[in-house]
Nucleic acid binder design. Structure first.
Length: 418
RNA sequence: GUGGGUGUAGCUCAGUUGGUUAGAGCGUCUGGUUGUGGCCCAGAAGGUCGGGGGUUCAAAUCCCCUCACUCACCCCA
């Protein structure tokens, strides 16, 4: 094989597309009931947009973006920044005080691929803009939980609060002191993190670090009055909606713009990539990007990861690809009739197919079977002359003679469940 | 960027201490009489054994290099 897709880029073959559609359809349906609107965004944006929103010194911006350097544009590594840009550009806050939006599409990050992580990956991205109300946080998590429920995927919700510009600096200082007091016991990565992004030390995977960090000061206990109240209303609201969750004081965020509530839906079925959905509040982001002082909260879920989970469940496999009718013609005259009839039936809205290579009836029956056809029309020279055809119900094996016309065939197809 | 694992047919994989024309299952195609699918049976097509170099009378098998894929680290959905 000479020509192949790029490393980290994958084709979604027809057999798998059914699961993708399942995920997307269920998402759209759930979002509809929660009164969200879909928005479609460009994949390419000015590089500066991501540098400003995600954080210029994050790994994503520093080395993982697909950037056309000469044009100063970048393939989006996530959707939130683009969505904020569109929100600001079109002054969507003037249309409604609270905007509830979602978008679905590909994202690009030049990371080393591994299970559940590709260089082109797809996310369902949901945002609520214009409300700082903690009940919105809970509503959003409840919606995600409901989607997982409908998909039959079992995940657990973990939640934390990261504080805000008022209380995080003080906590950060406290944490730094803690880290420095035992810096020699931490791994090299954590030493680096401590200067770059101290919060990240909290979710190091190494057992030794975890143990050290166990007694670290918890941000939840150092929230300011407002953040603390916010967080407790979030919890009360989740309780009132019957959504179960766990507090995880070690859960932090990689992106700069998160404040207050953060959450992840995680699974133990995906190896190292345990997060299926992650999100949080970002009250300062819109202002940072030049919009108004507008709060926001959102989450992103990885479609590939959801599909992997559905595949592991081993249910609902490639359903819904069957056709209504397969036309089997024997001989040139019959084949000509089938060809035209097939087109007419398609025009009437039936899915139909036939063999154009004039193979044996047996072969054509096999093709009909493989196409999961509900009915097969059999036309030979005798039928053609008599103006009749045989139609076979593939499930029951019942056959009957019908008039040789598209209308008669259509009527027959209607009669059986259509 | 770093480390481990794996590269044999379209797919999943066998291939013994190097030894004839490299195998199986699934899939594909064709048959199993005269116009009928799924099951069964028979046959066929399909492979530069990832690529290059080396050792050897002889390499899928041993050595070196390279590429690809994969899992994990970093980072992150």
């Amino acid at each position: 094989m000479k020509i192949k897709a790029l490393n980290g880029f994958k084709d979604v073959l027809p057999d798998e597309v059914g699961l993708w559609r399942e995920v997307e359809n269920q998402a759209r349906e759930v979002f509809r009931t929660f009164h969200f609107s879909e928005i479609r965004l460009p994949i390419l944006e000015k590089t500066d947009l991501f540098a400003r929103s995600i954080g210029a010194d994050t790994d994503i911006v520093e080395k993982e973006m697909y950037t056309f350097v000469d044009k100063q544009v970048t393939m989006r590594p996530e959707a939130t920044a683009s969505l904020m840009r569109a929100y600001i550009q079109h002054s969507l806050h003037t249309q409604k005080p609270v905007q509830r939006l979602f978008t679905i599409g590909p994202m690009f990050r030049h990371e080393r691929p591994q299970k559940g992580r590709l260089r082109q990956f797809h996310q369902i991205d949901v945002e609520i803009l214009g409300s700082a109300n903690p009940r919105v946080d809970a509503e959003l998590m409840a919606m995600a939980a409901q989607l997982f429920d409908r998909l039959g995927i079992s995940v657990s919700l973990e939640m934390n609060s990261l504080g805000c510009p008022a209380c995080r600096p003080a906590y950060r200082k406290l944490l730094l002191e803690f880290i420095e007091s035992r810096i020699d016991k931490l791994c090299d990565d954590c030493k680096r993190r401590s200067t770059r992004n101290p919060l990240r030390v909290l979710d190091c995977k190494k057992p030794a670090c975890r143990q050290e960090v166990e007694s670290a000061p918890s941000i939840i206990e150092h929230l300011c009055q407002e953040c603390s109240e916010h967080f407790s209303v979030v919890q009360q609201s989740l309780d009132s909606l019957g959504v179960s969750y766990q507090l995880n004081k070690f859960m932090v965020r990689g992106l700069d713009y998160y404040v207050r509530t953060t959450f992840e839906f995680i699974t133990d079925q995906l190896g190292a990539q345990s997060a299926v959905c992650a999100g949080g509040r970002y009250d300062g982001l819109i202002e940072l990007l030049g919009g108004g002082k507008i709060p926001g909260i959102g989450f992103a879920m990885g479609i590939e990861r959801l599909v992997l989970l559905l595949q592991q469940k081993n249910e609902l496999k490639g359903a819904g690809n069957g056709i209504d009718l397969f036309l089997a013609g024997l001989g040139d005259g019959a084949s000509d009739f089938c060809y035209q009839a097939m087109h007419e039936l398609r025009t009437l809205g039936f899915s139909a197919d036939m063999d154009l290579e004039s193979r044996s009836l047996k072969s054509q029956m096999k093709q009909a079977d493989k196409a999961a056809a509900s009915y097969t029309l059999i036309v030979g020279d005798q039928e053609l002359e008599a103006g009749k055809a045989t139609i076979r119900n593939m499930a029951t094996k019942e056959q009957k003679e019908i008039t040789l016309s598209s209308q008669a065939i259509a009527t027959e197809l209607e009669g059986g469940q259509y």
